[in-house]
Simulated scan of single mutants.
Amino acid sequence: MRRNGKFLPLLGATGLLLGAALTGCSDSGGGSGPGSDSESASPKKSASESASASPSGSASASGSAPASVRNGLKALDTGEKDVQGGTAFDLERDDDGSHQWDLKVATEDGKQFDLRISEDGGKVTQKREDTTPDDDVSKLKGAEVTAQKAVHIASGRHKGEDLASLEIDQDAQGTLIWQVNTVKGDGGGDGASADADDAAENETLIDARTGKVTGQKADD
C-alpha cells in the first residue's frame, strides 16, 4: 500500500502533465492551421499593399514615358556626372538624324562645358569647354528646381509627348523659369522628332524656385 501510495500521486501528476502536453499540442496545432493560412495570406496582402503604396506607381509612370523623355533625363544625369560639380541648364535633342543630345553644363565657378551625348543618354561623345559662357550660367544660382525635375513636371502635363528641349530663362515678369518643349511624336524616341516642324509643340514654363507651372503655350 505504501508503494501504491507513493506511485499513485506520481501517476496522477504524470497524467496531468501528459494532458497538458496534449492540450498544448492541440492548441498549437489548431492555431498553426489558421495561423499558417493567415501567415501565408498576410505576405500576399502586404505585398499587394506595398505594391500600391510604394513608389512603383511613379516608377511605372516613368517607365511608360516616351523613350525620348527617359533618354533625355539620362543625358542630364550623364552630363552632370561627366563634369565634376556640374549642373545641367540647357538640353536639346538634335534632329539631324542621329537624335543625339546637345547639353550645356555649368560648374560652380562659372565655367561652361558643351557636351554631345548619345541618343540613349548614356555616353558623352564630344566635350569641350566654352570660353564664352552663356548668360544663363549665372541664373542657376537662383534655381531650386533641377532640370530633371522640370522635365518630370512638363512630361507629366503632356503625357506621351517627346522631349525636344529644355533651358533655364526668365519670363516677362523676371521670374526665373525652366522652359521645356515637348512635341507629339511617336513616343518611341527613334525618329519621333524627324518631322518636328510639322508636329504640335507644347512649351511649358516652370518656376525654377517653386516648381509651379506658370505658363503653357501650344504651337500647332
Score class of each variant (00 low, 15 high):
E39I: 04
V105M: 05
R70Q: 12
H152P: 00
H152T: 07
L140K: 06
T14M: 13
Q216I: 09
W178I: 00
D94C: 05
D114G: 02
L163Q: 02
I153M: 01
L103P: 01
A150I: 02
I206D: 03
D77T: 12
A208F: 02
S58T: 09
F89N: 08
G30D: 09
A51T: 08
L205E: 11
E129Y: 02
D114M: 05
W178H: 02
G15R: 10
E203L: 07
D120R: 07
L76G: 08
L73S: 03
G189D: 04
L76R: 06
L16N: 12
S56F: 09
T182G: 01
G29I: 04
A194D: 15
E144T: 13
E108A: 15
A200C: 04
D94F: 02
Q84P: 02
L10P: 03
D77A: 15
A53K: 15
K141L: 05
S118I: 01
V180F: 00
L16K: 10
G86D: 07
S64H: 01
G215S: 05
L22A: 15
A143T: 05
G160Q: 10
D102H: 13
K127R: 11
Q179E: 14
E167A: 07
L166G: 05
N202I: 08
G5S: 13
K159H: 11
S58R: 10
P34V: 14
A53C: 14
D109Q: 10
L205Q: 12
T175L: 03
S64C: 01
G188R: 10
D90Q: 08
T146D: 15
L115Q: 11
S32G: 06
D94K: 10
D120V: 04
E108V: 08
G33E: 13
D190N: 11
I117V: 13
R93H: 04
Q179R: 10
D134F: 00
S28I: 05
S98I: 03
S165C: 00
Q216N: 14
P9S: 09
D82P: 00
E167I: 01
K111E: 12
K104S: 08
D109M: 09
L73H: 03
T78C: 05
G5Q: 15
W178G: 01
S50I: 11
I153V: 04
A53S: 15
L205W: 04
I168G: 03
D94Q: 10
D109G: 12
A59Y: 10
A65Y: 00
A65V: 00
D169N: 09
A194T: 12
G188K: 08
G33L: 10
D162R: 02
K81C: 09
G85Q: 13
G72C: 11
V183K: 13
L16M: 14
A13C: 08
K104F: 03
